[in-house]
């Protein structure tokens, strides 16, 4: 019994709905209504045109230009002339900083999936119970997500400021020393992960909470009547039915980790000695500090390919049952 057969007509949460609402699927439904086809095509073109033009100019063009620039040794001034083929890419995969970036992305993704998401799930389950001031807790836990990444970074810089910050003072009362947490290459990545989790756990919690509330109460009631313990209800009823939500939340978390920039840039600048540097930070440093725009473009292309390949495979193999009829399944109904 797969979750999708249970949920059946249920529309699912907002995110899956968004993914499902793609033009190809809309057209499938439209064809059945047999409106005058020529007029329909004209209307579709008219309504799609603004979005397509924007998409083309703001998404496709930069990708094409970056792909072009990545084949040149170019400092960004004038037009690229010195064609170097794939040299920039071989250089990236021999660059200890960039290889370190890949490793750190892997560590951050691992920690997000193993720590941040389970904690968010637990909190969502807690806040789904009937307890006093439930909505107050929900607002408080969601609040950090509303802050911008830069604001969050500045906030934590102040909290963990050596000798002056609140976090530093509190930790010294406890006999620890948190003031150097962002200044020590051994701890900075974990500190960064803490800040990311602080900002994003509320978002995932709300996703799970929404998903949880879409599960009909009858199911857990039936399981309880059959003698299932609270854990068994969670494990065999709630968790499988939360599947679509969890899969989307994992997806957002992984893509977010690959593209991480603003927070790191403001919080640590990628340092000390590259210990918290991400691919996007390296790209910015090479492009805007060192004026090696060709090389920076190559890094951005690698980031794009990583995200793109991950997104495609994830949609094809993990999300397929949640987004039947979408482009990756070529409209083949199971």
């Amino acid at each position: 019994m797969t979750p999708s057969t249970i949920t059946g007509p249920r529309t699912g949460d907002a995110a899956t709905e968004l993914l499902a609402a793609d033009p190809a699927a809309a057209q499938q439904r439209g064809r059945r209504t047999r409106l005058r086809p020529r007029r329909r095509l004209g209307t579709i073109a008219l309504f799609l045109a603004p979005a397509l033009v924007l998409f083309g100019l703001l998404v496709i063009t930069p990708i094409v230009v970056a792909g072009y620039a990545s084949l040149y040794k170019w400092n960004g001034f004038g037009l690229p002339e010195n064609f170097v083929g794939v040299d920039n890419f071989t250089r990236a995969f021999g660059d200890p900083t960039f290889l370190g970036d890949l490793w750190r992305a892997f560590v951050l993704i691992g920690m997000s999936l193993l720590i941040q998401l389970p904690v968010s799930l637990g909190l969502a389950m807690l806040l789904n119970q009937k307890l006093k001031g439930r909505s107050v807790y929900r607002v408080i836990f969601f609040a950090p997500y509303v802050l911008s990444e830069v604001t969050t970074a500045v906030l934590f810089t102040l909290v963990f400021s050596p000798n002056r910050g609140l976090g530093d003072t509190l930790s010294q009362w406890l006999g620890a020393d948190a003031g150097a947490i962002f200044a020590d290459p051994d701890t900075v990545l974990f500190a960064l992960f803490l800040v990311i989790s602080w900002k994003y756990f509320g978002f995932h919690m709300i996703l799970y909470l929404a998903g949880r509330q879409g599960i009909p109460a009858e199911l857990s009631e039936a399981a309880t009547t059959d003698g299932a313990s609270a854990w068994q209800v969670f494990r065999h009823v709630t968790l499988p039915l939360l599947g679509p939500t969890i899969r989307i939340s994992v997806f957002l978390s992984v893509i977010g980790s690959i593209q991480l920039f603003d927070m790191v840039w403001v919080l640590t600048g990628g340092g000390p000695i590259h210990a918290s540097e991400t691919m996007a930070v390296t790209m910015f440093d090479r492009g805007f500090r060192r004026f090696e725009v060709g090389y920076a473009s190559a890094i951005s292309i690698v980031m794009f390919v990583l995200s793109f390949v991950f997104a495609l495979f994830y949609q094809r193999f993990v999300l397929r049952r949640d987004i039947e009829g979408a482009i990756t399944t070529r409209g083949v109904q199971r």
């Binding site: 810089t157 050596p162 000798n163 002056r164 150097a180 962002f182 200044a183 340092g271």
Partner: peptide
């Protein structure tokens, strides 16, 4: 150098 100097900025309040 001062405590946490590896993470210190130049012109910020700390």
């Amino acid at each position: 150098f001062q405590k946490g100097f590896l993470g210190a900025e130049y012109g910020s309040p700390d």
